[in-house]
C-alpha cells in the first residue's frame, strides 16, 4: 500500500482512461452475453470462447490480408462475422433443440461447447500465444501531463459509444429488436402473434455472439492472444451482467464501468492485488442489490 500516497491526479486520470478503454471491451462482450441471457435465457458460458476465437481469427485474417492498416480493418470486419457464422451453426445445430431444458442443463451444455472450442483453438492455432500490432495510425501514444496514453485506447474509447448507440438503435428502433424485447418478457405471446420465435432467437443469439467476436477482435492488438483468455473474460462478463441486471444491456454498460474502473484504480492502489478489486466491487454491489443495479428482464 506504500504507493498510495504518491498517486497524482495525472496518474489517476491516466488510469481512469485505461479503465474506460477496458470498459469498452468488457461492455461489448457482456452486452452480447446479456442479450442472449435476457432473450433466450441461456447462460452462455461459451461466449468467452467466441471472444477468444474472435481474437485468433482477427490475428489470422489480418496476417492473411497482408497486415498493416488494410489487414486490420479487414480483420475487424471479417473476424466478428466469422464468429457470428460459427454461432449460427451452433444455434441451429444444437441449441435450438434444448430451449425447453432447465437453466442448469443449458449452462452445462454451453460449458461443454466451451471445452470443445477451447481445444479446437489449441488444435488450429497451437499452444503458443500470438500478438497482433495495431495499424500504424493507431500505434504509439500521446502524453497526458507526462503520462503516455496509447492511441489505440483512444480508438477503443470512440468505438464503445458507437456500439452502445448501435445496440440502442437495434433494440429500440428495429422490428427484430422490438420482437426480441417482447420475447424476453413473454415468449408465448410473441409466438401467439404468429412470429417464428425460433428464428428470432437465432437472430438474437447470432447478434450476441457477434458482439463477443467483436470484443475479441478489438482486444487483439492490446494483449497477447492466448489459450485461457476465454476463462477470464467469461467470468468477468457474467459478473458484469449480474451486477447490471440480467438481460439489461444498459446494466451491462454500468457493470462494465464498475468492473473496468475498479480494476484500473486497483492497479494504482495495490498492484499485486489489483485483480481482487473488481471481484470485491461485485460482491459489495450484490450485497446491497442482490438482483443487480438495473431492472432485470427475468
Amino acid at each position: 500500500m506504500d504507493g498510495a500516497a504518491n498517486i497524482t491526479a495525472a496518474a489517476l486520470l491516466q488510469q481512469i482512461l485505461v479503465g474506460l478503454s477496458r470498459t469498452t471491451i468488457l461492455f461489448i462482450v457482456s452486452s452480447g452475453l446479456s442479450l442472449v441471457l435476457g432473450v433466450l435465457r441461456i447462460p452462455n458460458v461459451a461466449h468467452g470462447s467466441l471472444y477468444m476465437i474472435g481474437a485468433f481469427l482477427t490475428y489470422s485474417v489480418a496476417t492473411l490480408a497482408g497486415g498493416g492498416t488494410v489487414g486490420f480493418i479487414v480483420a475487424l470486419t471479417v473476424a466478428p462475422l466469422g464468429v457470428a457464422l460459427i454461432s449460427f451453426v451452433v444455434e441451429r445445430g444444437l441449441f435450438c433443440h434444448l430451449y425447453e431444458r432447465e437453466h442448469l442443463m443449458l449452462l452445462l451444455f454451453t460449458f461443454s461447447i466451451m471445452l470443445v472450442f477451447g481445444d479446437l483453438v489449441k488444435l488450429i492455432w497451437g499452444s503458443d500465444y500470438r500478438s497482433l500490432t495495431a495499424p500504424l495510425f493507431l500505434q504509439g501514444s500521446f502524453s497526458i501531463q507526462g503520462f503516455p496514453f496509447p492511441r489505440y485506447n483512444l480508438f477503443l474509447l470512440l468505438v464503445g459509444p458507437l456500439v452502445a448507440a448501435g445496440l440502442w438503435f437495434l433494440t429500440n428502433k428495429t422490428k427484430i429488436g422490438k420482437i426480441a424485447r417482447a420475447a424476453a418478457v413473454d415468449r408465448e405471446m410473441v409466438g401467439a402473434m404468429g412470429i417464428n420465435v425460433s428464428w428470432v432467437f437465432a437472430a438474437v443469439f447470432v447478434i450476441g455472439c457477434y458482439l463477443a467476436g467483436l470484443g475479441g477482435a478489438l482486444v487483439a492488438p492490446t494483449q497477447n492472444i492466448t489459450q485461457g483468455m476465454d476463462h477470464t473474460i467469461i467470468i468477468e462478463a457474467f459478473l458484469i451482467v449480474i451486477i447490471g441486471g440480467l438481460g439489461n444491456i444498459w446494466g451491462a454498460l454500468l457493470g462494465a464501468l464498475i468492473f473496468g474502473l475498479t480494476d484500473a484504480i486497483g492497479i494504482l492502489i495495490w498492484p499485486q492485488f489489483a485483480i481482487v478489486f473488481p471481484y470485491a466491487a461485485v460482491v459489495v454491489v450484490l450485497l446491497f442489490r442482490p438482483k443487480g443495479l438495473l431492472k432485470s428482464t427475468w
Binding site: 457474467f238 470485491a280 450484490l286
Partner: peptide, 29 residues
C-alpha cells in the same frame, strides 16, 4: 450472503465470491 438468492442468482453470486477467494490465493505469493 448467498442463500438470500435462489437458482441462477445464487450460483452467480457464489461464483463471484469464489473468484474473490481464488484471486487472493492466486496473487498472494
Amino acid at each position: 450472503i448467498t442463500v438470500r438468492l435462489s437458482k441462477l442468482y445464487f450460483g452467480m453470486l457464489q461464483i463471484s465470491l469464489g473468484s474473490l477467494v481464488w484471486a487472493i490465493v492466486f496473487r498472494w505469493y
